[in-house]
Design a protein around this nucleic acid. Structure first.
Lengths: 250, 250
DNA sequence: CGCCAGCTTGACTAAAGTCAATCGGCGTGG
DNA sequence: CCACGCCGATTGACTTTAGTCAAGCTGGCG
């Protein structure tokens, strides 16, 4: 994935065919680039927001926090993701956006969303539908945090990351993840402490479900992990038909 | 709130001014009615879905589950809510919808959403934006489940219900809630067991933050509860401007 | 080489879950 | 009208899970 290619077009063409006009529009979303080091904030809660962001390279995450320091990561963002839809409903940001590793993001103004509705209905339908899928993924997260044990949570996270990595790489046989997050950050995502994340890793490792070499994790027993985590892949395909005009429609 | 009036128009006019044409459209969404008793399922996971639903009366909730019986309620639905947006992204339902008390809902076909985009842009913008706000509310839920203690969770839930009740009643001074859910159901919403919900209730009661008489709960110390729960009201107002065409737009 | 952030491990604590007994209100049927 | 049964709430005793604290370890890097 070079800087010259568009991550957004790459991500979107997994789901729909893209016309030349749409290609022009999507390219415009990635016109501006901002490079980020590790652990840099892009915006913080209560800040005025006028932009959304496309992830071009690297990982980021959105988190919410409590004033006593407790922190909860709500979503991990990968290349091709569009960040900022929820905050369209409010003038000020309700979450914080931070890079997990070195990253490149492309800010674009809110009004381009409106323009996509006017000029690129297919793209608008996909943006909208991807946003609905995000809600389904949040259902999974809510279930994970509310009702699943530490081991199950970690297994779920690894499978989820693997599923997204496979689409980004276009290679469904990948088994290895490089995880650029500390165990404290993983804990903030899974609703656990860093210490317990470490123990959960060891449990999965001792059960021979995963192997670790530094930041690299190999999911050697994908089936067993999926059963443990009650994992269902939400990234395979999505349904935009309901939104597109058809000849039969009154 | 009589059967003759529209809950949807009532809920929407809290946020935007409604034209006659929009009134006609919204009324159509509530044309068909289905009455439900307590604890009835409307749809279940993996079922084909062709409709969305407007809540006309009563309470319902959506839940997800694990095959060993663990259950997590992801959202409680009140009159004026539109149910089913997330599942637009998938052909089959990913959650289950069940009534919490006697309720009346109005099913309407998915394609009316598409029509609203074509004919009632203000309504479409509001539907879309409300859906984005749902995501912000899910951030709150994720934070609650991942990082908050039992007492805090319960306090948050009560304040959230109160805020929604106040808008539905149009009376911001209400302090009392009638909660038509068992403590097991509350536990399924808060990620706790029924036993621990009972203890959390007693803690709030002994701290004189609430008073209980049967299903009725009075929030006598709203300020203190809000501090305990780190509560922020998400229902006051929302921002649809970003989506509406303006004269200045290219 | 040595520092430092992050990981691991052990011992202990706290929070929430489990199990079981009891209570109490309500609806039903005798 | 009363007794019974049931569902849900409460309470206590105990277990399990996860958190806390602290010490030691490791590996990358200046």
């Amino acid at each position: 994935m070079t800087d010259a290619s568009s991550c957004l077009i790459n991500a979107f063409s997994y789901y729909i065919d893209i016309t030349d006009e749409e290609r022009v529009f999507l390219t415009e979303l990635e016109r501006d680039e901002v490079a980020l080091g590790r652990n840099q904030h892009v915006y913080r809660r209560d800040q005025d927001l006028t932009c959304l962001y496309v992830v071009k390279r690297g990982w980021l995450f959105s988190y919410v926090d409590l004033d006593d320091g407790r922190r909860q990561i709500v979503k991990i963002h990968h290349p091709g993701d569009v960040i900022g839809f929820p905050d369209l409903a409010t003038p000020k940001a309700t979450s914080n956006l931070q890079s997990a590793a070195e990253a490149v993001i492309c800010p674009f103004p809110r009004k381009l969303i409106r323009r996509s509705f006017a000029r690129c209905p297919n793209v608008a339908a996909l943006l909208f539908t991807l946003s609905m899928r995000d809600q389904i993924i949040m259902y999974d997260t809510i279930r994970l945090l509310g009702r699943m044990a530490a081991r199950e949570r970690l297994a779920f996270m690894l499978l989820d990351l693997l599923a997204r990595l496979r689409i980004a790489k276009g290679d469904m046989s990948v088994l290895r993840i490089r995880l650029p997050m500390t165990q404290t950050e993983i804990g903030d995502y899974l609703g656990l402490t860093n210490v317990h994340v470490s123990r959960a890793f060891r449990m999965l490792e001792e059960a021979a479900l995963i192997e670790r070499m530094g930041q690299d994790i190999r999911l050697c027993e994908e089936e067993a992990l999926a059963r443990l985590a009650h994992f269902e892949n939400r990234y395979h395909e999505i349904d935009t038909d309901w939104m597109l005009e058809t000849a039969h429609d009154p």
